[in-house]
Design a protein around this nucleic acid. Structure first.
Lengths: 147, 147
DNA sequence: TTAATCTCTATCTATTTGGTAGAGATTGTC
DNA sequence: GACAATCTCTACCAAATAGATAGAGATTAA
C-alpha cells in the first residue's frame, strides 16, 4: 500500500496541474478542495519543493505552482520522495540498496528473483506515467477493477 | 517493501519444498538453517498451517511438511496471508476492498487508474509464480538487477 | 504596518513491525 | 506411566512508522 501521505501528494499535484494556466494555488485551497489536513499538506508541498517538483511564492499573494511541467513529473519520482524506495526488497532498491538481513548470495536468492520481476514491472509503469498522463486518461469504462 | 515476516515465510516454504521427499522438518532446523528467530517462525508456520499451506505433526518426531505441493503455492497467496492485501490502494484490493478516504468517485480517480495498472502487473507475477517455479529458476546471470 | 502566506521544527498518538516469554497439548519411546 | 521432544496458543513488549497537530518565524503585497 502507498501511504496516505503519498495519496495526498498525488492529489495536490494533480490539482496544481489542473490550475496551471490560471492562478497560483494556496495551500489552504488545495487542502480544502482535496480534503487534506492543511498542516500536513504544508509539509508535503515543502518536501516536493525541496525536491524540485513544485515552486512557491511567500507572503501575501503567495502560493504554489508546479516547477516542472506536468508531463515531466512521474508517479515514480513523487512516490520515492514521499514514501521512499519503491522496490519490494531492500536488495532491489535503486535509490537505497541494502543487503537483505541474513542473505549471503543475492544471485541465488529465489525470493529476490521473483520480486525483481515485480520491481521491474512496477517501475516500468510508475517511472513512465506522468501527472499529465493521469489527467489526460479517460474515465475507466471496462470491467470493474475491483472484481 | 514486503515485511521481514513475509521474507521468513518464503524462506521457510522454500526450505520445506527442498526437503520434501526427505524427512519432516523441525521448526528449529528451519529456523537455524534460514537464520530466522525460532519463536517468530513458529507463529508464521502456524499461520500458514491455518491457511492450508503447510501441515504439521506434534509430539516427538513431529515437525512440518508442505500440505499443498510446491507448484500449487503461489507467492501472491502467501504474501496475502502474511502481509495482507497486495494492492497499492485500498480501493484496488480484491481481498479487502475499502473506499479510499475522501474519494467520492473511483471511476474518475486518476491515482486509482495509474495504480490499477501496477496492481494488475504485480498480481500477474505473484499469482502465477509458485514456490516450485522459484526453486526451479536458474541463478541470474545477466545485467545486475540493482544497476 | 499589517495581514496573508509560506517555512521550519518540535511534538504527539495510534498502529504496525518484529520480536520474546511461557504455559499447554500431543506424541513416541523406554 | 514417565519423560522428553515437539508443535500450539495467548499474552506481552520495544522500536519504528504513519498521520497528523502546534506554534513561532520569515517574507511579501498593499
Amino acid at each position: 500500500m502507498i501511504s496516505q501521505k503519498a495519496q495526498y501528494a498525488f492529489r495536490a499535484l494533480i490539482a496544481l496541474a489542473r490550475s496551471e494556466d490560471e492562478e497560483i494555488s494556496l495551500i489552504s485551497d488545495i487542502a480544502s478542495g482535496q480534503n487534506i489536513p492543511k498542516k500536513f499538506l504544508e509539509q508535503i508541498l515543502l518536501d516536493l519543493k525541496r525536491h524540485g517538483i513544485v515552486q512557491s511564492r511567500r507572503g501575501k499573494m503567495g502560493g504554489y505552482l508546479l516547477l516542472k511541467s506536468a508531463d515531466e513529473i512521474t508517479f515514480g519520482e513523487v512516490l520515492r520522495i514521499v514514501d521512499g524506495p519503491i522496490a519490494p526488497l531492500p536488495c532491489l532498491s535503486k535509490m537505497a540498496y541494502r543487503k537483505c538481513d541474513g542473505c549471503d548470495d543475492e544471485n541465488s536468492c529465489e525470493i529476490r528473483q521473483v520480486f525483481a520481476r515485480v520491481a521491474d514491472a512496477t517501475r516500468e509503469i510508475l517511472d513512465k506515467t506522468t501527472i499529465a498522463d493521469a489527467i489526460a486518461s479517460p474515465d475507466y469504462e471496462g470491467i470493474p477493477l475491483t472484481a
